[in-house]
Simulated assay, not measured.
Amino acid sequence: MNSHEQSTTSRLHVIDALRGFAIVSIMLLHNIEHFDVYFTAPGLSDWMYTLDGYIWDTLFFLFGGKSYAMFALLFGLTFFIQSNNQAKRGKNFNPIFAWRLVLLFGFGLVNSAFFQGDILTIYAALGFLLIPASYLGNRMILTLAIFLFLQPMEWLNLSQIVQNPPAAIADPVSWTYFGKMSEYISGDSMVATWIGNLTNGKKAVLLWNWENGRFFHIASLFLFGMVLGRKGLFEWNEKNNTFWNRTLVVSLTIFIPLYLVKNNLDELIMNDAIRRSFGTIETSWSNLSFMVVLVSGFVLLFHSKTGQKILSLFSPIGKMSLSNYVFQSIIGSSLYYGYGLGWYQYTGATYGLLIGILLSILMGYGCTWWCKRYKHGPLEGIWHKLTWIWSH
């Protein structure tokens, strides 16, 4: 393995800040979505409905399909950092990592009970790909990552549709399961909601991720993140400064035409089935290219004097990303679901955004307080102890 030894302090600081930024963006999205309770609150004024629409579109433009991708990229990067640290001590990290993934899957199941849109279980399952990949060279890893990024299964599906276009387009299978959500999420039983999320909800989310090509992109981003770690690209020097500047320009240049195509697919492709399949590919590429814009812009801004003071505020949140991800699901479901306060009935995207901002500020203060007193976040501490339980 050809790896670079990074500056631990600067690397971890910018990575924590970036991870914290991703957590906050997820918090804002989940709140305007009412944590998957899609409901238009009645009785609001016309201007409020208009404002809700603008806020919804803006937040999804900025973060929809990008936040999970940032986490996936950082997941692969973190795997390299941990593996590299253990290698310096003469230890093979892969068996330990496999056990960590099993534990992460457990955290994900707990999180899924409160919020069916959980991503931890998917990361845990796909994370096993990193173990055999760790024995490959960078060129082979990049080849595999690009192949996965291109969405091979959807291209196969598209080729079949082009050859035999269906007379009518069927709804995605996931919609059947999403349609059953209101039976338990809007109800007043916490247990029924947990059961519904872990059964019907889990099927809906897994199918939706498959239908939108996210399994391939998550695996691809894991591999790209690992290569970023191997290349030492988060260590700040003149060479890497040039890399991130070029990455920002290239990703923005790629994103603009992709976004224009995405917004004009109805005029460009008349057949519904072909448009849906091609749109799945094109939208995923568009989202990931903008995610790279966000990451490269964040890294560059972080290393400016003014930018670092502001963006460092995200670092404590990022250090406790697992805890924050699970806790926001617990808090969000308590606020919006039927067994809690039922706020989904009264809040639109504007109020959801304000609630999300308030929760993010409180989360920032709470994490700052915690990090000054403890080495790990609450769930991170449990994860750490269980990870190394067999070595004591």
Rank of each mutant, 00 (worst) to 15 (best):
F149M: 15
S186K: 14
W47G: 12
P257C: 05
S333L: 06
L126T: 11
Y374M: 09
V293P: 11
F255M: 08
N138S: 15
K180F: 09
S182T: 10
L258Y: 03
L294G: 01
L101F: 00
I131H: 01
L294N: 03
I96K: 00
G279E: 08
T306N: 12
M1G: 14
L101Y: 00
D52M: 02
D118G: 11
I310P: 13
S83F: 00
L51D: 02
S189G: 10
Y337N: 03
P257D: 06
Y365I: 15
K180E: 13
L228S: 04
T280D: 09
R11E: 08
W47A: 13
W155L: 03
S334T: 07
L265I: 07
L148H: 01
G297F: 05
N197E: 07
A41N: 06
M291K: 04
I361Q: 03
D188F: 09
N241P: 09
K309Y: 05
N31P: 13
W56Q: 09
P378T: 01
Q163W: 03
I195V: 15
F107P: 02
F21K: 05
F63E: 00
M48V: 15
V261H: 02
S3P: 11
N212L: 11
G76A: 04
F39K: 12
T9Y: 05
V102E: 00
F105I: 07
E267S: 14
G232F: 07
I331G: 01
L120H: 02
L206D: 11
Y346R: 14
K319R: 14
T199R: 07
G381V: 02
S277N: 13
V24C: 01
Y259C: 08
Y365A: 15
F314W: 03
V227P: 12
N324V: 01
K202E: 05
G364H: 04
F114H: 00
K231P: 08
Q160D: 10
R276E: 12
F314I: 09
Q160F: 08
T199G: 10
W390L: 11
Q160Y: 09
W208D: 12
F222C: 01
Q160W: 06
P165W: 01
P42D: 13
D46L: 13
G381S: 10
V191D: 07
N92L: 00
L136H: 09
G225I: 00
N237C: 04
L313M: 07
D36T: 15
T193R: 02
K239S: 09
S329Q: 11
S334Q: 04
F234Q: 03
A22F: 04
S7K: 13
L77M: 05
W370I: 11
P132K: 01
A219V: 00
A133F: 01
W210L: 15
L62Q: 08
G318W: 03
P165F: 02
L130E: 06
L248Q: 08
W370P: 13
R139E: 09
I357Q: 03
N164P: 05
P152C: 08
K180T: 10
M48F: 09
I81V: 06
N31C: 15
G338V: 02
I361V: 08
V110P: 11
G76R: 05
T9H: 10
R275F: 09
Y49P: 10
K385G: 11
L130N: 07
F93K: 02
G318V: 03
N324C: 02
V37M: 14
K231S: 10
V37G: 05
N241I: 08
M70F: 02
E235P: 01
A273P: 07
H217S: 13
D272N: 14
